[in-house]
Amino acid sequence: MQLNPGQVFLGALLVNNILLMRFLGLCPFFGVSNAVGTATGMSGAVMFVMLLATWVTWVLFHAVLAPLGLDFLRTAVFILVIASLVQFVEMFLKKNLRALYSSLGIYLPLITTNCAILGVTFLNVDYGFNLLNATIFALGSGLGFGLVIILFAAIRERLADAPISRSLSGYPIAFVAASLVSLAFLGFTGLFGISF
C-alpha cells in the first residue's frame, strides 16, 4: 500500500501529531518548553536527528536486517544507531554552534532516550513506508514536534506570570494546558480522510 506523500505529511504534522496524539517525546516536551528560545533549539536538534535516523535505520532494516531474517535485532540496532548519531550531533554543535550548545545543555544527550525519534523509526518500518514516504513522515513528525513545542513554550511563558495556586503551579498546570492544546488538535481528526 503506497500512500500519497501529501497525506503522509499532513497526517504526521497535524492529524496524528507526534506529541499530542501519539504521546512520543513527552520528556523533552515538558523539560525544555519553559522558554521559546530553548524550545526552538531543541526542536531543531530533534528534526535533524530524526531525519538522519530515519534514513540510516530505513536502509539498515531493508538492506541488512530484513533480507537476513534478523528482524528481532531491530530494537537493539535502532537504538544504538540513534545513540551514535546523537553523539555526532553533540560534537558538531559543540565545535560549530557554541551558543546553541550551551543553551540546550543537558537535553542534547537526552535525545538518545527521546522516544519520538526511536518511535518514528519503528513506525516507518511498521507502516511499510518506502524511502520517500519515510522521509516525508520523519519531516512531518519533526515539524509537528517543533510546531507544538514552540506554541506550548509561548503558552508556558504566559503561565509563568499568571497567579496559579501552589499545588497546581509547575507541572500540573502545564499538563492541563497540554490537555487544552491537544483538544484543539483533536479537531484535525479525519482531515482529508487521513486515518493513520
Binding site: 499530542l20 496524539m21 504521546f23 499538563f175 492541563v176 497540554a178 490537555s179 491537544s182
Partner: peptide, 9 residues
C-alpha cells in the same frame, strides 16, 4: 489524548 493529559495533571 486530552483526557490523559488532564488526568495526570
Amino acid at each position: 489524548a486530552p483526557g490523559a493529559f488532564l488526568l495526570i495533571g
